[in-house]
Design a protein around this nucleic acid. Structure first.
Length: 716
RNA sequence: GGGCGGCUAGCUCAGCUGGUUAGAGCGUCGCAUUGACAUUGCGGAGGUCACAGGUUCAAGUCCUGUGCCGCCCACCA
């Protein structure tokens, strides 16, 4: 108990005599919340009757959380805690993503370190190892989510490889196939020669690079290329049909030209894809290794030949260059053409856009491959109708709406086949060029199962549906469409439109009413965090140093929708000070409340104190409004400002004077008012700083609920 | 090539539908302070709101243009 030196000192809980120490309390508080059962909406008291649901974007189950997750979890948890206290029946549904390609890449790096390779492993062996690895990491990831104070219902947690999820995803594929929305086709795909898989466009990075641009003599023409190594099969020479310079050459005409490995017969093709303004207005084509060329070849029914194999080495067509890697072959081929007098000139500082694998930076090799494609146009149209015409989804910040729509207006068919083991199997079988799609293996001999797995976004696109148990689940009926989808701005392409698409296709309803995009969490200088720059800040380290509440405040204050937030240790430290300030405010109020509590509990408030209480009420209303409008950054700043600079700096200071010189009525009124103000402030702060507020609450002598987490919000 | 942002105090940024002398945090300078506060308080300095036009009784805020910075998308070989 408190030191009792004069005999008049108050009896306040001893813990308030020391500074607030988050490390000593956070774990126990989270356990209390979890044990209370109130994370599960089914256990909430009766007043919580209107459903409110947020589905957690499942973090990748292949490692710890990063600072971005910290913001992600904080914003959602603020919304959920606010709505829970307001009496909503709140479901915050957590999950974990197997993260197909991402995880496989992480695991391959691990194998590499051990001197192993996935290419020497049985598929089943590899799958089982990654599965085990993922389960281990999933636990760590979940610990981190708990650590951040996230009030989600763990009893409903979903993993993207849960059997029911797999089943649903496969069923969707079959249904879409039956509806004509999925087809198998030979198309140019983005092939990563290192990872041995095709990638979607969002899994590649396009950067402008300086590459030598070679000009060669090709019969009577001059052609340009940055990729001489693909030119072996070039037997078509293409020009624009209206190009007057080449009028005398007729479409389909054949000419003999001297080329890399001797004379070949070239065919003249006229096609409007050629830009007469670029170079000489003449090009040769390599349909297997270029999307544009492939399209031209298809239009004119030309031969299509593979030049580079799946590992990035030249095929027998290259004759003496067979088996060489691209980089080596390029040089040698140019030398040979030069020796033959066919090299006209080289532009050394030519700039062009090079596509690379977003994970390993290998140059993407366009390859032609049989893959499953989603026909995007009919699906995108539904999204456009829902978002643009019917305005069924509020998107924050507003400009992301335009970006999303722009993407939906310009979408191309989506390759969903991945040549990796770590994912959900595509339910298809092949026999003699015939394909069968269905949930069960077809009858008959000789069917070969498709080895490929789904692009991870094909399954996570259905996340709001599968987590709630579409189509028959009780939760689906209660919580779909969900209220808020809060996620990173980078997912405006990858994820959000796909969820809307699948939601409209399967459930005929948008999956969420509001989308809130947050920006990136950068370092203190607002530079992107990256391992190579060495400026990565671990959220968990920060919580250990300063407490979770401080981290949450630092991430949220001054961070409106869509903007990037610089995270500095100084800022986090500042909010640790704030937690302690609140702690001491409580101490002050408890001391005086205890000293002055007497028989006159019926004393009315003085006019002055009524005004103070009114002021808190209007603050509550303002903050409620801000939270309703998802202005978390403003709400957090306002309550911070009030507690520190109004309550502590002014009201408490003034109270000291009243306690010294005021009348008995004034003193009694003030001490009651202060206690009221403390209660309201703790409630207003709780969504932002759940731990310190709950910890204080647990020692208050008088309150409306045992746990602050489910106490009643002070405004409507 | 197309799209989207940003430009407000030394730094990081707020400023919602246009409305008094433009705000916060950090930093800085001065003063006070052993206290409810290890982590405190009070006060000060510091801004032609990127630039140029326009609309308006009124513009940081709306419109047009310019400049610089950043991000995203893109199949000119």
């Amino acid at each position: 108990m408190a030191k009792n030196t004069t005999g008049n000192e108050p009896q306040i809980p001893e813990k308030f005599l020391k500074p607030y120490n988050p490390q000593e309390t956070e774990e126990a508080i989270y356990a209390r919340w979890e044990d209370s059962g109130f994370f599960n909406p089914d256990n909430l008291p009766e007043r919580h009757n209107v459903p409110y649901c947020i589905i957690m974007p499942p973090p990748n189950a292949n490692g710890r959380l990063h600072a971005g997750h910290g913001l992600d979890m904080a914003l959602k948890d603020i919304a959920i805690r606010f709505e829970r206290m307001r009496g909503k029946k709140t479901l915050f549904l957590p999950g974990a993503d197997h993260a197909g390609f991402e995880t496989q890449v992480v695991y391959e790096k691990k194998l590499e370190k051990e001197g192993r390779s996935r290419f020497n492993m049985e598929p089943k062996e590899l799958y089982d190892e990654i599965y085990e690895f993922t389960l281990e990491n999933k636990k760590l990831m979940e610990d981190d989510i708990r650590r951040l104070g996230t009030s989600c219902d763990w009893s409903r947690e979903k993993f993207t490889l849960d059997p029911d999820v797999i089943l649903r995803v496969q069923k969707t594929f079959v249904e879409m196939y039956d509806d004509g929305l999925i087809y198998r086709g030979k198309q140019t795909v983005n092939w990563c020669p290192k990872h041995q898989t095709s990638l979607s466009d969002v899994e590649t990075e396009s950067n402008e690079e300086t590459t030598p641009f070679y000009h060669f003599k090709y019969g009577p023409f001059e052609i340009g290329t940055v990729r001489p190594e693909t030119k072996f099969g070039d037997k078509y020479v293409v020009m624009h049909p209206d190009d007057a310079r080449y009028e005398k050459y007729k479409h389909g005409e054949q000419i003999e030209v001297e080329w890399i490995n001797g004379p070949i017969t070239a065919t003249i093709i006229k096609d409007e894809a050629v830009d007469p303004e670029f170079g000489t207005g003449v090009m040769t084509i390599t349909p297997w290794h270029s999307q544009v060329d492939f399209e031209i070849a298809k239009r004119h029914d030309l031969d299509i030949e593979q030049i580079i194999d799946w590992r990035g080495k030249l095929l027998p067509i290259a004759q003496e260059f067979e088996g060489m890697k691209i980089a080596d072959a390029r040089e040698k081929i140019v030398e040979k053409l030069e020796a033959k007098g066919l090299l006209v000139r080289v532009d050394k500082d030519y700039k062009n856009v090079v596509k690379r694998c977003y994970k390993c930076q290998s140059m993407i090799e366009p390859q032609v491959k049989d893959q499953w494609f989603v026909k995007m146009q009919p699906l995108a149209e539904k999204v456009i109708d829902a978002v643009e015409k019917e305005d069924l989804i509020e998107i924050m910040p507003e400009h992301q709406r335009r970006i999303l729509l722009h993407w939906m207006h310009n979408t191309i068919d989506w390759n969903i086949s991945r040549q990796i083991i770590w994912g959900i199997r595509i339910p298809a079988w092949f026999r003699d060029g015939e394909a069968y799609v269905g949930m069960e293996e077809p009858q008959g001999e000789g069917w070969q199962a498709d080895f490929d797995t789904f692009d991870t976004w094909f399954s996570s696109g259905q996340w709001p549906l599968v987590t709630l148990g579409y189509p028959d689940g009780k939760d689906f009926k209660t919580y779909y469409p969900t209220n808020l989808m809060e996620t990173g701005a980078d997912l405006v392409f990858k994820w959000v439109p796909r969820m809307i698409m699948f939601g409209l296709y399967l459930a005929k309803e948008v999956p969420f009413k509001t989308v809130y995009f947050h920006g990136m969490v950068n370092d203190a200088n607002n530079q992107k965090m990256s391992k190579s720059k060495g400026n990565v800040i671990s959220p968990i380290d920060l919580t250990q140093k300063y407490g979770v509440d401080a981290l949450r405040m630092a991430l949220v204050v001054g961070n409106p929708a869509g903007s990037n937030v610089p995270l500095s240790e100084e800022k986090v430290k500042g909010y640790k000070h704030f937690a302690n300030k609140l702690w001491n405010v409580t101490r002050f109020i408890l001391i005086h409340a205890e000293v002055h509590t007497g028989s006159n509990s019926k004393t009315l408030y003085t006019k002055k104190d009524e005004e103070l209480l009114d002021e808190v009420s209007s603050l509550s209303e303002e903050i409620t409004k801000d939270l309703e409008l998802h202005r978390y950054y403003l709400a957090a700043e306002k309550i911070y400002h009030y507690v520190w600079h109004r309550l502590a700096d002014e009201i408490l200071e003034e109270s000291k004077q009243i306690f010294e010189e005021g009348s008995e009525e004034e003193i009694a009124s003030r001490k009651r008012a202060l206690y009221e103000m403390l209660l309201v402030n703790l409630k207003l702060l709780h969504p932002f700083m759940p731990f310190v507020t709950e910890e204080i609450w647990s020692d208050l002598p008088k309150k409306d609920t045992d746990l602050l987490m489910i106490s009643e919000w002070p405004a409507h």
